[in-house]
Amino acid sequence: MLLELANRIKTLRNERNLTQAVCYEDTGINFGRIERGVRDISFTTLVKICKYFNVSMNELLKDTF
């Protein structure tokens, strides 16, 4: 499940033509670790990612669970 979520976040980032570095500068979140699936994501981080990409939690998690 973690890898599916990681791929979803990577897709959102790529759809917006953003690099991991830009996302880190904007949010302070290390997208590289998340997208590799090596870091479990806290609820707070999920909320920040949703706000950053302007998507609902349902939209972010769709097809993941």
Rank of each mutant, 00 (worst) to 15 (best):
F65V: 09
E59A: 15
N54P: 01
L3S: 12
N7E: 14
F53Y: 15
L2M: 11
D63K: 10
K51T: 08
N30A: 12
E35M: 09
N54Q: 14
V22C: 03
F65A: 08
Y24M: 09
L18C: 08
T27R: 09
N58E: 15
V22T: 14
K51R: 10
S42E: 12
Q20K: 13
L12R: 03
Y24Q: 04
T27P: 08
Q20I: 11
K51L: 10
T44A: 15
T11Y: 06
L18D: 02
I29C: 10
V47K: 06
E15H: 06
L2R: 11
G32S: 15
T64V: 15
E35A: 09
A21W: 03
N17R: 14
I49Q: 04
R16H: 13
A21I: 08
M57F: 07
L2C: 02
M57E: 00
G37W: 07
L60V: 05
T19W: 08
D40L: 08
I9T: 00
T44Q: 14
K48G: 00
A21M: 07
K62F: 05
T19E: 09
E59P: 04
S56M: 07
R16T: 04
F65M: 04
T44P: 07
T44F: 14
L3G: 01
Y52P: 04
R33Q: 13
R16A: 07
N30D: 15
I29E: 06
I9F: 01
R39H: 14
L2S: 02
N17F: 09
T27K: 05
L3A: 07
L46T: 06
R13M: 00
G32Y: 09
V38Y: 09
C50D: 01
N14R: 13
I34V: 14
C50L: 04
S42A: 11
K51A: 09
E59L: 05
L12P: 07
L5R: 01
E35V: 09
M1F: 12
R36Q: 12
V38C: 07
M1P: 10
Y24R: 05
N17L: 13
I34A: 12
F53K: 01
C50K: 01
L18K: 13
R36N: 12
D26Q: 13
K51P: 00
N54K: 14
I29N: 05
G32R: 10
V47D: 08
V55L: 04
S56C: 08
C23A: 14
N7H: 11
L3D: 14
I9A: 00
T19G: 11
T64N: 12
T11R: 09
A6N: 11
E35R: 11
L12V: 09
R36S: 13
C23D: 00
L46N: 04
F43C: 11
F53D: 00
V22P: 00
Y52K: 04
L2E: 12
T11M: 11
I49F: 03
L60P: 00
S42G: 15
K48Y: 02
I34D: 03
G37T: 10
S56F: 10
V38A: 07
E59H: 12
